[in-house]
């Protein structure tokens, strides 16, 4: 990304009140950047202006690469750390490429947080099952961190993660740490092994039949590409998890983030406003409409 100075960013943001107008980005400075995989980075941001309100796990922010464009990105950090924002994004085009390239010191714009959360509070007393495909682990990470910080409120904690190959595993330090906890079950599977890989091979849905949770008492949180959401939700239903306790984070082409522009319309809902997290009973009829 072309380096943007703090003052230039202030000019770009303009004189509107970034404290109240959800369309005006707040300036944040990248303070740390970690390469997760070949094309995916995690960045830590500190506010230069009034910080955006605290986010809940599952919500997203619009990240603005000045002069390039905006994209919706879910938060991947610990929601209790309100002073710093953390997100993880993959370089798939001009805007995400510019944002991924932003090094410590670079300034980017942030609007949000927007959308619905995973709503962990409603899952007290249940088994929590987090199911991630690829970069889908990023939005689930913040929920998992929150659940771990309130461990006594939940029964089993299970993370099922699928990636294409071992090189695409993100948050390796976290995964090692979570695997070491006696009260968290972590299962990872890859589509294709590699030299040195001694774990499971197969898609993430193959982990469902034997995953250690009680379907009668489980709440599932699923994040990944839409096709993975569909088949994972189906697998959870076959295991006996009720549709209203399967929560899916979906994605559409979001522009405004606040339900004004309609770009992210999915049938009767706007994903930025009514989602991105939906329960399966609400989303299933929409996922099965080809034209949507």
């Amino acid at each position: 990304m072309t380096a943007v100075t703090e003052s230039a960013a202030a000019d770009l943001v303009g004189s509107a009140d970034s404290g109240t107008d959800p369309m005006v980005p707040h300036r944040y400075r990248v303070v740390r950047r970690r390469l997760e995989t070949r094309d995916t980075v995690t960045q830590l941001l500190e506010p230069l202006d009034e910080p955006i309100p605290a986010f809940a796990p599952g919500q997203f922010a619009m990240l603005y690469a000045f002069g390039v464009g905006e994209v919706p990105i879910s938060m991947s950090g610990d929601p209790s750390r309100v002073e710093l924002l953390q997100h993880t994004l993959r370089n798939v085009g001009a805007v995400t490429g510019a944002l991924c390239a932003a090094r410590p010191g670079a300034v980017i714009g942030v609007r949000g947080p927007f959308g619905t959360s995973w709503d962990l509070n409603s899952a007290y007393g249940h088994d929590l099952v987090f199911i991630a495909g690829g970069i889908g682990l990023a939005p689930l990470r913040s929920a998992l961190l929150q659940a771990l910080s309130q461990r006594e409120r939940y029964r089993r904690l299970v993370l099922l993660l699928g990636v294409r190959n071992p090189d695409e595993l993100m948050f390796r330090k976290d995964l090692r740490s979570w695997k070491g906890l006696f009260d968290v079950d972590v299962e990872i599977t890859v589509d294709r092994g590699a030299p040195g890989w001694r774990g499971q091979v197969g898609v993430v849905t193959t982990l469902l039949p034997q995953a250690p949770f009680d379907p009668d008492n489980a709440v599932a949180f699923v994040c990944g590409p839409e096709v993975m959401l569909r088949f994972t939700a189906l697998g959870l239903s076959q295991r006996g998890v009720p549709a209203q306790r399967i929560r899916l984070s979906t994605e559409r082409n979001m522009k405004c983030g606040v339900g004004l522009c309609g770009h992210c319309q999915l049938g009767p809902v706007l994903v930025c406003r009514d989602g991105p997290v939906f329960s399966y009973d609400r989303l299933a009829p929409l996922l099965h409409v080809r034209e949507l």
């Binding site: 993959r90 798939v92 085009g93 001009a94 294409r164 589509d191 898609v203 590409p225 096709v227």
Partner: peptide, 12 residues
Amino acid sequence: LMNLYDPTPPRR
């Protein structure tokens, strides 16, 4: 075969 985790993402 469907490349479950990486169907061609929208370029943004």
